[in-house]
């Protein structure tokens, strides 16, 4: 990993669909060099995948999301890992993190509507024997996701000429 790799990651994280030629220009590399570096980082699993950032609400698809905090009893020999792996298998769980403080896990749950979410939490997550407590926080509106602003924002104005 050098400064150019770092630049590549930054570019791809922002928009992984950019033309190869553009990426080469931005990093001052040849296209072949870009391809080699990117595939090396894919092989090393530094790059985990590519995806689109979607405003599902705008797409007309019902969306609901919640952060669910979990108190968990860790298991002898496995700590939190095994229970984490069990929870992570559910497609409804889009992120799962071990956190400090009062709770142990913070998971992000998505569904088509609130009922989906509450049903999932009460029927799938809460009954697991290692889960001691759940605290569900429903998302009411999203303003920013993954570093992207979701509302319309007016840009500041600049003079067209200045020294």
């Amino acid at each position: 990993m050098d400064a150019k790799d770092w630049l590549l990651l930054r570019i791809l994280e922002e928009d992984s669909t950019q033309e190869l030629s553009e990426v080469a220009d931005l990093t001052d590399l040849t296209e072949a060099e870009v391809e080699d570096r990117v595939s090396a980082m894919e092989d090393d699993r530094i790059i985990r995948g590519y995806c689109a950032s979607i405003d599902w609400e705008k797409a007309g698809e019902g969306v609901a999301a919640a952060t669910v905090n979990l108190k968990v009893t860790p298991e002898r020999d496995f700590g939190y890992d095994r229970i984490a792996e069990r929870i992570a298998r559910f497609p409804q769980v889009s992120s799962l993190r071990l956190i400090s403080g009062e709770y142990d896990f913070e998971i992000r749950v998505t569904g088509r509507n609130i009922q989906d979410i509450t049903r999932f939490v009460s029927e799938q997550i809460a009954p697991m024997e290692q889960i001691r407590e759940t605290g569900t926080i429903l998302v009411m509106k999203s303003y920013k996701e993954n570093g992207r602003i979701l509302y319309d924002r007016k840009e500041g104005e600049r003079l067209l000429f200045s020294f």
Binding site: G156, R158, L159, L160, F161, S162, F163
Partner: peptide
């Protein structure tokens, strides 16, 4: 030295200005 350019540019609405001497970040 750019007064005249400024006047011309005011009349146009699809100008790409490479004439700015300040960041485009907030």
């Amino acid at each position: 030295g750019i007064r005249r350019f400024f006047d011309i540019v005011q009349e146009m609405d699809d100008v790409i200005s490479l004439g700015v001497g300040e960041p485009d970040y907030a």
